[in-house]
Amino acid sequence: MADEPHRRVLVVEDEPMVAMLIEDMLVDLGCIIAGVATTVGEAMEMASSLQVDFALLDIDLGEGATSFEVAVALGARRTPFAWLTGFGPRGVPPGYAMAPVLDKPINPTLFAEVIRAWPARGQAGAG
C-alpha cells in the first residue's frame, strides 16, 4: 500500500459516531480524510473547495435533508462516489443507482472493494 498514492475521500455523514467509524475504516485503507460534512451545505462547500478523489454519501442527513444534491454536484465534477445508507440499495432512487451502495452497518470487505475500485487522482486517472 505504501507505493499507492493516498486517495483523498470526502465523507458526508450526519451521525458523529458513524462518521468516526468511516474515518477509521478509510484511514486503515490508506486514505486521507479530505473532509467530513454533516449537512448538505457543508458537503456542497467541501465538494467544490477541496481536492477530493472519492466521496462517501449518507443519503439521509436528518430533518428530511438528503445528499442527492451533493451527488449531482460531484457528478458534474466527475468525482466518483458511493452511497452509504441504512435504507439499503432499495433506498436509492433509480436515477442515482449507478453509484455503488454500501449498507449500514458497514461490511469492511465490501467497503474496501468499493474504495479500492477508484484510483487516486494523479495515478491512472491523470491525463
Binding site: 451521525e15 459516531m17 458513524v18 467509524l21 435504507f87 452497518p105
Partner: peptide
C-alpha cells in the same frame, strides 16, 4: 441500522 452502525463504531 443506523444504531447498529453506531454500535459497530
Amino acid at each position: 441500522k443506523n444504531t447498529l452502525a453506531t454500535v459497530q463504531s
